[in-house]
Design a protein around this nucleic acid. Structure first.
Length: 239
DNA sequence: AACCAGGACGTGA
DNA sequence: TCACGTCATGGT
């Protein structure tokens, strides 16, 4: 770190640039309710919107991101998205409809996303929370009090649903930066989070793309050991 | 057939 | 605080 600063370079920015050059803009967070068009057609089954940092453009889209953030916990996005579509068909993803949705129907709809018993409850809790907001932006501490929302989910909601500059740390992020020698294995969430936030400008599009790029990169190089990250290890001389 | 996926919660040291 | 078991389906 000190050497990097003396050289007037920022390794965190270098890594971002390399990932961006390699993978391009990711366009997170994926939305189903997009452009007011029929979701089963536009289907944001590909639902990405690279380069559009204005989204979400209404409260309902922020709410959809909350639902997706719960559903994708320790689960592939493809599975979470399928669950989200099932819910859409039943409720149009309107909070009131989710609230009154029968428990067994809810569970059947989201079964494909795994952990459906707890996630069914979590979805109701986050819905109650969303309705109480009445359009206001929540504080991080408040979201963390919602059952089912941990640090990563809270930061995901703040960064992608409310455009707050909170860096999102997930298992992939830790895996990559441990492999590159920046952090110890099982480093605490807030330590890793602060590492990024203290070495990057607090820009929402940067944080959004960075996290998405790390996920995309990790899916290719960090799913099975031994990790062979020929892309980023070039940036780390003594490795 | 084990292992992993865009984690979080509850429990007992 | 911390380490660990638990939750669960779906794909390699």
């Amino acid at each position: 770190m000190i050497k990097a600063q003396l050289k007037n370079t920022n390794i965190f920015r270098e890594i971002f640039d390399k990932l961006m050059n390699h993978y391009g803009m990711q366009g997170w967070w994926p939305l189903i309710n997009f452009n007011g068009t029929n979701p089963t057609k536009t289907c944001s089954l590909q639902g990405y919107h690279p380069g559009n940092y204005e989204l979400p453009e209404n409260d309902l889209q922020s709410y959809e991101i909350m639902l997706g953030a719960i559903l994708t916990q320790n689960t592939k996005w493809k599975s979470a998205q399928k669950a989200l579509f099932n819910l859409y068909e039943i409720t149009r993803l309107e909070p009131q409809n989710i609230l009154i949705l029968r428990e067994d129907i809810m569970k059947e709809a989201i079964r494909c996303a795994g952990f459906f018993n707890q996630k069914a409850e979590y979805l109701k809790r986050i819905t109650e929370f969303f309705l109480k907001l009445e359009g206001s932006t929540p504080e991080r501490k408040e979201i963390l009090r919602v059952k089912g929302v941990g640090e990563e989910t809270a930061d995901s909601i703040l960064l992608y649903a409310y455009k707050k500059p909170e860096f999102v740390v997930d298992a992939y992020t830790k895996r990559i930066f441990h492999h590159l020698g920046f952090i110890k294995e099982n480093e605490k969430y807030r330590v890793v989070k602060k590492l990024f936030e203290s070495n990057l400008p607090q820009a929402v599009p940067l944080f959004q793309e960075y996290h998405a790029l790390l996920v995309e990169h990790a899916k290719r190089y960090y799913t099975k050991k031994p990790y062979q990250d020929e892309l980023l290890t070039d940036l780390i001389p003594n490795l």
